[in-house]
């Protein structure tokens, strides 16, 4: 395996505490958090601008929801690795997120291990792509 370059991430969540916690967790996992945004529209804008490796999306955000961001990314054939972070852990939600293009689903409250697993999956997917 080649040396992994530092993973860059964007966080989208309307709750400030959540953004801060996730940023700390990601930094602990040696990820570079490029920015944090509070709604879907800002997320779309920042993804285009900053081109992060991974985007963490809350579902319930004012205006454009996390799922709508997924739709937008799908339409643009974006290569960003999409992670839904949500308190709604029902299988229907998960299924819908997958159908709309999520690469991972993290249920709130999460442990650091969950985020770690997501990063691991991102690397695996990257390796699989070659």
């Amino acid at each position: 395996m080649n040396v992994k370059k530092q993973v860059t991430a964007l966080i989208a969540d309307d709750v400030v505490d959540m953004r801060m916690l996730l940023k700390k967790v990601l930094q602990g996992l040696e990820c570079n958090v490029l920015d944090k945004v509070a709604d879907g529209a800002a997320a779309i804008e920042k993804i285009d601008l900053l081109k992060p490796d991974i985007v963490f999306l809350d579902i319930d955000m004012p205006g454009v929801s996390g799922l709508q961001v997924l739709d937008n990314l799908k339409k643009k054939n974006s290569e960003v690795f999409r992670v839904i972070v949500s308190g709604q852990n029902t299988v229907e939600n998960i299924k819908e997120a997958i159908a709309r293009g999520a690469n991972a689903f993290v249920v709130k409250p999460y442990s650091v291990s969950k985020i770690e697993q997501v990063i691991k999956k991102y690397h695996e997917q990257l390796d699989a792509k070659g």
Binding site: D14, V15, D17, M18, K108, P109, Y110
Partner: peptide, 24 residues
């Protein structure tokens, strides 16, 4: 509904699962 949802998401992460459960 909005606030209870947010609280559910945050409380557990900071070590208060009981608050998360009630909010849920």
């Amino acid at each position: 509904q909005e606030i209870s949802h947010q609280l559910k998401g945050t409380a557990g992460s900071f070590g208060y699962p009981e608050i998360t459960n009630t909010s849920d």
